[in-house]
């Protein structure tokens, strides 16, 4: 039972084990280990993991803040970031959109990406480019 309890300590996240592992294992040497002890350790490990995850998420949120939903660039990497309902778009992506709209005119077929569009967003994944094109195909008739 005690050995099983000590083994459950390995389920805790790494930083936790580095900090509390030795003293928890010392405590288990003296503690009257029962079935409830094992269940409690398991629950503790789950809580510790959730907590670690939450901290990581918060740290990410603090350092990067919001980012452009289209190209993924953070606030620090763009001149302007415009907020929409649950999404953000940066000035460069807006410029790109304007350009594609201007070039596509009233056509309803998807326009081929221009050289400038490719230069502005060289890191756009292909899937996203396809999606953008779909978006413009829908938007073009009303915009033109």
């Amino acid at each position: 039972m005690r050995r099983l309890a000590r083994r459950l300590l390995r389920l805790y996240p790494r930083p936790w084990r580095d900090r509390y592992g030795p003293e928890m294992s010392a405590l288990l040497d003296e503690h009257h280990v029962r079935l409830v002890t094992l269940a409690d350790l398991l629950a503790g490990a789950v809580r510790a993991r959730l907590q670690t995850q939450e901290e990581r998420r918060m740290a990410r949120g603090r350092s990067n803040g919001v980012r452009c939903s289209f190209c993924g660039k953070g606030r620090a990497q763009v001149a302007r970031l415009v907020a929409g309902p649950g999404v953000y778009i940066c000035d460069r992506c807006i410029a790109l959109c304007n350009e594609v709209l201007a070039e596509s005119g009233p056509r309803t077929d998807p326009p081929a990406p221009t050289a400038r569009a490719r230069r502005l967003a060289p890191d756009l994944p292909r899937l996203f480019r396809t999606w953008l094109r779909h978006l413009f195909r829908i938007a073009a008739p009303s915009a033109g």
């Binding site: 309890a5 509390y20 409830v36 409690d40 350790l41 398991l42 629950a43 503790g44």
Partner: peptide, 9 residues
């Protein structure tokens, strides 16, 4: 129990 104790600590 140790899990609860150390969670609170």
């Amino acid at each position: 129990e140790p899990g609860t104790l150390y969670g609170a600590i």
